[in-house]
């Protein structure tokens, strides 16, 4: 069968029921895989350090650069100070995942607040708020992130806030569009006619109806926040050693790429796994909650 006749077949019979089901199944399976990856990572990072015999800060200069699987219990090897890589990866995971979740929570809250106010009141307030969103989106995100991060004292909290400050705009846009259309619906008008307050209509009537896209956007935001933490810490302006994060573990790993490549490969692998997990789950949620949002 040539490419061209294949395209004809696809067009002529759009409802290849079995293929569709297969597609949904695979999609679903990916979301499940993502969820499993997240659960495993969270459990590993949360419980692992209690069970693992090595401490992430214990220096052992006689066992520097131990290769993975070759040095007894150091299954993931050791770093330039002889610290156990698995112990460090688990502690770093705590930091990276916490920053990811916390930044997601803050950015989602800010996005919801801005989007709801802009969508509900419209007019001058709405225009002003959404123009502000547009302006922040004009900055390439890493540029804004670095400009902010470089000028604050880097602590866990400040880095989380900085990441949240560069990630709330998408949620604001999604929520604004939803609220603006919901606002004209009968139930909203009825509530208004009954004399409900603005706050009641916004947060009790309209917002619960916009929850699906918010859930999707905030799941994808966790992925984004973990990535942003990695970028900013890799560039040296994020989480500062001795507190390990997946990003700052990569910070000086490039120097050892020739002699100890696992220092660079392992943290990145975990970042990719975590981010892929959240992206798969977000995509699955999008399919499940609102098929209209599907672009593929």
């Amino acid at each position: 069968m040539t490419e061209a006749t294949d395209i004809a077949a696809t067009v002529a019979r759009p409802s290849r029921a079995r293929s569709r089901a297969l597609a949904r199944f695979v999609r679903h399976r990916l979301a499940l895989f993502g969820l499993a990856a997240i659960v495993v990572l969270v459990l590993l990072c949360a419980a692992g350090p209690y069970l693992w015999p090595y401490n992430d800060l214990r220096i052992n200069m006689r066992q520097r650069f131990a290769e993975p699987l070759l040095a007894g219990l150091h299954v993931f090897g050791t770093d330039e100070l002889g610290r156990d890589m698995l112990a460090r990866l688990m502690m770093a995971g705590r930091v990276s995942l916490t920053v990811g979740f916390a930044a997601m929570a803050i950015s989602t809250l800010v996005g919801i607040l801005v989007g709801t106010l802009a969508g509900y009141f419209g007019g001058m307030i709405g225009t002003a708020l959404m123009r502000f969103v547009d302006a922040v989106l004009c900055f390439p995100s890493i540029f804004l992130l670095l400009a902010l991060a470089a000028f604050v004292q880097p602590t866990l909290l400040s880095i989380t806030l900085v990441i949240a400050a560069t990630a709330w705009m998408e949620v604001a846009r999604v929520v604004e569009a939803q609220i603006r259309s919901l606002r004209e619906r009968d139930f909203a008008l009825a509530s208004e006619a009954l004399g409900a307050s603005d706050a009641h209509i916004m947060f009790r009537e309209l917002l619960p109806n916009a929850i699906a896209p918010i859930v999707v956007a905030s799941t994808l935001n966790v992925a984004r926040a973990i990535l942003l933490e990695a970028y900013v810490s890799y560039l040296g302006y994020g989480i500062q050693p001795p507190v390990p994060s997946w990003g700052n573990m990569l910070n000086n790993a490039q120097e050892y790429l020739v002699t100890a490549p696992w220092l660079a490969l392992l943290p990145g692998l975990l970042i990719t796994l975590a981010v892929t997990g959240f992206n798969f789950v977000g995509d699955g949620l999008r399919d499940a909650l609102d098929p209209r949002l599907d672009i593929s």
Binding site: L227, A253, L257, T272
Partner: peptide, 12 residues
């Protein structure tokens, strides 16, 4: 989902 800089490191 891959951090660009890490992909660069793998590439190198």
């Amino acid at each position: 989902s891959i951090p660009t800089f890490w992909f660069g490191l793998v590439f190198i």
